[in-house]
């Protein structure tokens, strides 16, 4: 046909439709991220102008006596923060999801709404609310513990170096428990009823039913929850900044990569801001998150069995 031999008219509308999204995404998000990564390869030259230094900043971060202490401390704290989330938040999230999806449990809409509520609050609110509740000055938690005979357990948990990080991680778990709960709940209600009935007929019931049938079916959702937790935790900043300040006290025991990045870039009472080292820490965080995502995509996701339902 003659028409098909002709060149099609240029479809301008495709360009018009794509342009705003691509422009904003590239200019505001991608280029600055790459610029930050590039900046981590520069340092202050003798004349004050930026000078290319290769990987020297990263070597400094990992080996220099001034930098390596805070960096390893923040990284280790971040790992602890993540592990507590994985060990507490996700199992409890799975438990709550399993309970909510039990048959026709009356009142489950109320439970769902209430349990998800803290996730909607900002870190600022969550941080301050818990700071007040745990504060020895107010004494609410001491009274509460006392009423069940555990008054002597109370300690200023947020103020002690060896308990502050764990306390903050648990506060964060308290806030975000709704997310794993909802995602896993969604996966559980997608399991067809016939499957569960068939299992019951074969004598697989109760706890057994959960571990032998439901759990294998929701592994993919648990995988998604885990990678979301990982990316979220290694980007965390707000909660610690709000409740412990930029210095992540007491004595840096709650310092994680996000707070270290903020302090390094903007400076604080102890040091002036250093954009190059700030960019280096951002680069390190980028690599860590990238590693996590790759482990998930190639190590975890491919081995998961997906069942068609």
């Amino acid at each position: 046909m003659a028409t098909s031999a002709q060149r099609k008219p240029i479809r301008w509308h495709i360009g018009v439709l794509l342009a705003p999204a691509i422009l904003i995404y590239t200019v505001i998000m991608l280029l600055p991220v790459f610029d930050s990564l590039r900046m981590s390869l520069y340092g202050k030259g003798p004349d004050g102008a930026p000078m290319f230094v290769g990987l020297a900043n990263y070597t400094t971060l990992l080996t220099d006596s001034y930098w390596q202490g805070p960096f390893w401390n923040a990284l280790w704290n971040n790992v602890v923060f993540f592990i507590i989330h994985m060990l507490v938040q996700n199992p409890i999230g799975i438990l709550l999801a399993a309970l909510l999806s039990l048959g026709k449990l009356p009142g489950r809409e109320f439970y769902r709404t209430a349990l998800f509520l803290p996730t909607m609050l900002s870190f600022v609110i969550v941080g301050f609310v818990w700071k007040l509740i745990l504060s020895p000055a107010w004494g609410v938690s001491k009274t509460l513990l006392g009423s069940v005979g555990l008054g002597s357990w109370f300690a200023p948990w947020l103020g002690q170096p060896d308990t502050a990080l764990i306390t903050l991680a648990l506060i964060s778990v308290w806030q975000f428990i709704g997310l794993p709960m909802m995602l896993i709940y969604a996966a559980m209600i997608a399991i067809p009823d016939e499957l569960m009935e068939a299992a019951s007929c074969d004598g697989v019931t109760g706890i057994n039913q959960f571990f032998k049938i439901k759990l294998p079916l929701i592994w993919p959702s648990i995988g998604v929850v885990s990678i979301l937790t990982f990316v979220g935790n290694f980007n965390a900043f707000d909660l610690i900044y709000v409740s412990q300040g930029a210095l992540a006290g007491p004595n840096f025991s709650t310092d994680i990569l996000g707070t270290l990045l903020y302090r390094t870039f903007f400076g604080n009472q102890l040091q002036s801001g250093d954009p190059f080292m700030g960019a280096t820490i951002a680069g390190a965080m980028f690599l860590i998150i990238l590693c996590g995502v790759c482990v998930y995509l190639y190590g975890v996701q491919r081995r998961l069995a997906y069942y068609q339902m």
Binding site: I22, M29, L31, P32, D35, A282, M285, F286, I289
Partner: peptide
């Protein structure tokens, strides 16, 4: 390619570009 390019951003935390965004 453009689709992948745009969706890739889901995995890139924008906070890490803070230094560059502030400069911009």
């Amino acid at each position: 390619l453009i689709g992948l390019f745009l969706v890739m951003g889901i995995m890139v935390p924008i906070r890490l570009g803070t230094v560059g965004i502030l400069k911009l």
